[in-house]
Nucleic acid binder design. Structure first.
Length: 361
DNA sequence: CGGATTTGACCAAT
DNA sequence: ATTGGTCAAATCCG
């Protein structure tokens, strides 16, 4: 595992290169009255490439950050890592036996990535409670939240015990606009859903799975995105708000085929604080370069209790290439804990080329 | 009967 | 002390 760095790196570059190439092709297609399908397919491939690349990156980084690597530092920074690993608990008399395990779990939980997604259920399409996103969730709690009209539901992956999948999500209905649900995901699914509906969409060259990787993301993402797509088609509006700052894992979001969105997550992921880790260093030092160090881009003020949500109208998308789907995606980066970003103006530059030079080369 | 949900209590973080 | 998140026993549902 450790030494798959090189391999990984190469694959990563491959993916990205491929993505670039595909993008070029797409560009060509745009100038020619080609079939929608081919374009669509290109877009999908591009996205697939990016997602793949992202997963590789994140997988690595998460690894590096998660386990104190021998090579040194494993900065897990942040204020939280209490050195309680010892056995601080002297009082807890109740359920101490399992403490250990739980301890670990909860400890990690802190560093789990989070990202929020505002989902609007367009009236008319009867899609209420479930809000299925492709995964099977098991509700484990519900709580009234201060200042919120509706209670918040807590869900965790059904296969948590079986496969140790730590993914969880919280669903909260908006105060005034009952058609909006705020879904906060935490952690990634590590469970294996054998339901990849994703049409391979063509033999993309050497898309061999990340084989040596852990049983993790690849397909999942896809199936998930598939599902989301479904949702979109049902008339959902999805706004995402990314929170995965302090932790490398990727928000890896299933972006529907609508252009806009994508990728920016990375910047967060590599927020200066997290850097360090050998892996990233190897992968692309330039990437981290302050160049765009553009902290966390746009970002609609988290307006915690305000709830107002209502899709900050100011953020206008360049051109939602898919008008048919009334979907909108917004991603706001917010720092979960530290990394005080100077939020402020949701400037979301349509050009939005997050300096890929360094990245791609 | 097994798995999911409900719900109040417990725990941790602020 | 307050609030959000999780646990787990009781309950519900197929």
């Amino acid at each position: 595992m450790e030494n798959m760095g090189e391999w990984e790196q190469r694959s990563l570059v491959n993916e990205l290169t491929q993505g670039r190439e595909l993008a070029r092709q797409l560009q060509v297609h745009l100038n020619v009255p080609s079939s929608h399908e081919s374009r669509e397919s290109l877009v999908q491939k591009i996205q697939a490439s990016y997602e793949k690349a992202l997963s590789m990156l994140n997988y690595n980084t998460s690894l590096a950050a998660d386990q104190p690597q021998p090579s040194g530092l494993a900065i897990r920074m942040s204020e939280s890592p209490p050195s309680r690993s010892g056995s601080p608990r002297s009082e807890d008399s109740d359920r101490d036996c399992k403490e250990q395990e739980l301890k670990d779990a909860s400890k990690k939980r802190k560093t789990l990535p989070r990202w929020t997604q505002l989902v609007r259920v367009t009236p008319g399409t009867a899609l209420e409670g479930p809000l299925d996103d492709g995964f099977s969730w098991r509700k484990y709690g519900q709580k009234d939240i201060l200042g919120a009209k509706h209670p918040r539901g807590y869900y965790r992956c059904t296969h948590r015990n079986v496969q140790g999948c730590l993914a969880t999500k919280q669903v909260q209905r908006s105060d005034d606009d009952p058609t909006i649900f705020e879904i906060t995901y935490r952690g990634r699914h590590t469970c294996t859903l054998a339901s990849h509906v994703m049409p391979p969409s063509g033999p993309s060259e050497n898309q061999e799975q990340g084989t040596c990787m852990e049983p993790q993301q690849p397909e999942q993402n896809q199936s998930q995105s598939q599902d989301l797509l479904l949702n979109f088609q049902r008339g959902l509006k999805v706004i995402t708000e990314d929170l995965g700052i302090d932790e490398p894992t990727y928000p890896s979001f299933p972006y529907p085929s609508s252009t806009t969105s994508n990728i920016k997550l990375e910047n967060n992921v590599f927020s200066p604080s997290v850097i360090d880790n050998n892996v990233v260093g190897n992968l692309s030092t330039s990437f981290i370069s302050p160049a765009t160090s553009g902290t966390g881009y746009f970002s609609m003020s988290p307006s915690p209790s305000g709830m107002n949500n209502t899709v900050p109208g100011n953020i206008n998308f360049p051109s939602t290439s898919e008008p048919q789907l009334s979907t909108e995606i917004i991603q706001a980066a917010t720092s979960a804990t530290n990394s005080p970003f100077p939020f402020g103006n949701p400037e979301f530059d349509p050009n939005f080329t997050f300096d890929n030079h360094g990245f791609f080369s």
